[in-house]
Design a protein around this nucleic acid. Structure first.
Length: 486
DNA sequence: GTAGATGATTTCCC
DNA sequence: GGGAAATCATCTAC
């Protein structure tokens, strides 16, 4: 709306308002507006149409007043002050004031029409949703533990990695606190500023046309300004959370190879449970503990349950994909385990002989029931199998068997390997022990330590021979149990 | 620098 | 929810 239109409107409205006012004044007091003199020495021309019926005269009068208002800034300060005072005291001031208020209101409404009723800012909604999801905004639920858990779940964790989680949570809580403190500050500042502006406007409304709606609108503007500041705060908070999260995930992605001992422990378990290489949760925990002990002696970090799970997942896949490649490793660990079993057996025999010298061949029983070797026939069968390679119990995938692997220990494939000499001597020991103990029980074949590798035709793992409780001969009673549920 | 090994992550399926 | 498979990212040996 241009100013000229505004002034024209103002003039018409003012004339009409003055008509009404004059009529009211006349009817209630019998005092004619036309009789008013101009106070303050203002040389306002006397209004035409003393009876209040001369519209042209009034328009001229109002035009003069508006002209003076418009040119007030062109005059010196003293002159302007005098003119202002004169206008304030002018008989038409109240009418003019209300009309100006009305015009401003209308103008404001037309501007507001375009500004208000804005749909909620999608950017702000995104930020709000994100902060809510991350546990920064909204009701406190343990400082974003849900988000931490989500991050853990997303990264395959199972609630462990407690160090990283607590670290993440602590930092998230820090961000949350800062966010809420800043938010409170902004809100407080917004309220204070709003109150201040409202008071100021109320004060000013005595001297210039300010309607309550205008004040309301001003408050809205202030709130919008502060909202935009809040949005910036939300944006920076989101960025901070994103950075924290990415760092957290990056840290998890960073990997360090497990120590040789840890890998050996895992491999031993894997190959000794080859028919069913799915450790239970307890077994995983036990393995993690064992690996961590060996690791902590060196690197100083720990191996978690989820890492054990990862390791077994990777191992299963990679073993299945390339059995041939892992055959040597399988043989190696099988041999190793067998040797350890033999050592254990030898120790048991020695103990048995020492304790019962009169019954040296009365039977052999290891701590694990899986290793009960009290059947002479079975022992002989196993003994034969061990050295003829005919036992199905030792079948390795595709081809070969434990015995072949044992033979190969003397051959090229293991020459030079660190285990070569050791295993050879241990094999000798094993032979000796076996000859002393007069063989094994076939049950040994049932032990997953030497069980057939359980890949079925479909590429899945067989579930046939895994005992409910398997103890590696190398481990003793405190060893890891497999998960038969698999 | 590169290839292979390996731990971690993601996606899909049951 | 757990596992398989694919993939990523880093480590390690050469």
């Amino acid at each position: 709306m241009s100013f000229s239109i505004c002034v024209a409107q103002c003039t018409d409205s003012l004339a009409a308002t003055m008509d009404d006012q004059a009529r009211i004044m006349q009817s209630i007091g019998g005092v004619s507006l036309a009789g008013h003199s101009v106070q303050g020495g203002m040389a306002l021309p006397p209004p035409h149409g003393h009876d209040g019926t001369d519209g042209d005269g009034r328009k001229q009068d109002i035009g003069d007043i508006l002209h003076q208002i418009m040119t007030i800034t062109d005059q010196s300060l003293d002159e302007a002050q005098a003119k202002k005072h004169g206008l304030n005291c002018h008989r038409m001031k109240p009418a003019l004031f209300s009309v100006l208020c009305e015009i401003k209101e209308k103008t404001g409404l037309s501007i507001r029409g375009a500004q208000e009723e804005d749909p909620p800012d999608p950017q702000l909604m995104r930020l709000d949703n994100m902060l809510l999801a991350e546990g920064v905004a909204g009701p406190e639920k343990g400082g974003g533990s849900a988000a931490a858990a989500a991050a853990a779940a997303a990264s395959g964790g199972a609630g462990d990695n407690s160090i990283e989680h607590s670290d993440y949570r602590a930092k998230l809580t820090q961000i949350r606190q800062i966010y809420h403190t800043e938010l409170e500050k902004y809100e407080q500042a917004c309220n204070e500023f709003t109150t201040h502006v409202m008071n100021l406007l109320r004060e000013q409304s005595r001297t210039r046309p300010i309607s309550p709606k205008e004040i309301e609108r001003m408050v809205g503007i202030i709130h919008r300004k502060f909202s935009s500041i809040q949005m910036q705060l939300k944006q920076s908070t989101c960025e901070a959370v994103m950075i924290l999260r990415s760092r957290f995930l990056d840290a998890r992605r960073k990997r360090r190879n497990f120590s040789k001992q840890a890998t050996e422990i895992l491999n031993e378990y894997f190959y000794s449970h080859l028919s069913n290489p799915y450790p239970s949760e307890e077994a995983k925990e036990e393995l993690a503990k064992k690996c961590s002990i060996t690791v902590s002696q060196g690197v100083g970090s720990t191996i978690t349950v989820s890492q054990v799970s990862n390791w077994f997942g990777n191992k299963r896949i990679r073993y299945k994909k390339n059995i041939g490649k892992f055959q040597e490793e399988a043989n190696l660990y099988a041999a190793k385990t067998a040797v350890n079993a033999a050592h254990a057996a030898a120790a048991a025999v020695q103990n048995s002989q020492a304790n019962s010298p009169t019954t040296p061949n009365s039977g052999f029983q290891m701590k694990d029931e899986e290793f009960q070797l009290d059947s002479a026939e079975s022992k002989n069968t196993l003994l034969t199998n061990m050295f003829t390679g005919s036992s199905g119990s030792f079948n390795l995938p595709n081809s070969g068997d434990m015995f072949l692997s044992m033979q190969s220990l003397n051959g090229d494939s293991y020459q030079g390997a660190q285990v070569g000499a050791n295993v050879q001597s241990q094999v000798d020991t094993l032979r000796h022990v076996i000859s002393q103990t007069a063989g094994y029980n076939d049950a040994l074949g049932g032990n997953t330590m030497y069980s057939p590798h359980g890949l079925n035709a479909n590429g899945g793992w067989q579930d046939a021979t895994t005992p409910s409780s398997v103890i590696s001969p190398t481990e003793g009673p405190g060893s890891v149990h497999s998960d038969t549920s698999n």
